[in-house]
């Protein structure tokens, strides 16, 4: 990645988040619906719905980050396969050659994505719990979607811990964990609408948002996507620098230059 990537995306994210906060609190409307008896109905969107914008954006980026880590980990493991294990076609050889040449890059991307996913997942879980208390009067109702999201988040925390303490083979162990997490993220997404959460898809809650709400929501998602890119690129650069530094030190020790 080129050097301006992080500042450019960070500035875009900062401007976008500031604008989205204005849009959420001063532009996006609330919706009150009345039943025939004059009482407020269950589909009314009260002030606590303002949590929706940040909560859902972080949840979406959590799924994106975990899926990205899973794919990167598959590429990392492929890069470690023996050359004769590659597919016989010349194009495949070319693709495999590219994958092998950037083996450490896939690992760096996976590691950085998981780091960011842990932060985004914590935000999504905590903000969702607070919203649940406001809207459903319960902090945690233990339904399958919440439980599997928490399990996914714990797998990501496990990834970080293993990465830190498992020694030289940590990259391969954590690649397996990231693939498992990537597969789990599919189930997290498809469980939307199977419980208390509103449905997803073409008739889902995001697709049917009102005009004032839809613009604020997608602006929020785009802003946090920029934030996500800036964080991942920063972590990739940092991880790469750490590895190169470690390798230089080992080489210096081997050559007797360093003590």
């Amino acid at each position: 990645m080129k050097k301006p990537t992080i500042p450019v995306f960070a500035v875009l994210a900062a401007a976008g988040i500031a604008t989205s906060i204005y849009a959420i609190f001063f532009h996006a409307p609330l919706q009150y619906g009345l039943n025939e008896d004059g009482k407020l109905n269950g589909s009314s969107l009260f002030f606590n719905q303002k949590i929706f914008y940040f909560h859902t954006a972080h949840a979406m980026l959590l799924i994106l980050a975990v899926a990205s880590a899973g794919v990167s980990s598959i590429l990392f493991l492929l890069s470690r396969t023996a050359p004769d294990a590659a597919a016989p076609g010349p194009e495949s050889r070319g693709a495999m050659a590219f994958i092998r040449a950037h083996g450490s890059m896939w690992d760096d991307i996976a590691s950085a994505s998981v780091d960011v996913a842990v932060a985004f997942g914590a935000i999504a879980l905590l903000s969702g719990s607070i919203w649940a208390k406001a809207a459903w009067d319960v902090w945690w109702n233990g339904e399958p979607r919440l439980t599997i999201t928490l399990l996914l988040w714990l797998v990501l925390v496990g990834y970080v811990v293993v990465r830190r303490f498992a020694g030289p083979s940590a990259d391969r162990i954590t690649a397996g964990m990231a693939i498992f997490g990537g597969v789990s993220s599919y189930f997290v997404y498809t469980m939307v609408g199977k419980d208390s959460h509103p449905a997803s898809g073409t008739n889902g809650v995001v697709a049917t948002l009102g005009p004032g709400m839809k613009g604020a929501f997608w602006l929020t998602v785009a802003s946090f996507a920029c934030w996500y890119i800036a964080l991942v690129v920063s972590r990739v650069q940092s991880t790469r620098a750490e590895r190169e530094l470690r390798e230089l030190r080992e080489r210096g020790l081997d050559l007797g230059v360093l003590q």
């Binding site: 004059g38 009314s44 002030f47 940040f54 932060a119 935000i123 905590l126 607070i130």
Partner: peptide, 30 residues
């Protein structure tokens, strides 16, 4: 209905503040 909505909004303001505070604290910690 207005009184009911007002009560809901008043009750929820606190939770919105908690929610956004939690999000910013985690982001800052990261």
């Amino acid at each position: 209905a207005h009184n009911d909505a007002y009560a809901h909004v008043q009750k929820n303001e606190r939770h919105v503040i908690y929610g956004y505070a939690a999000m910013w604290i985690i982001a800052a910690a990261f």
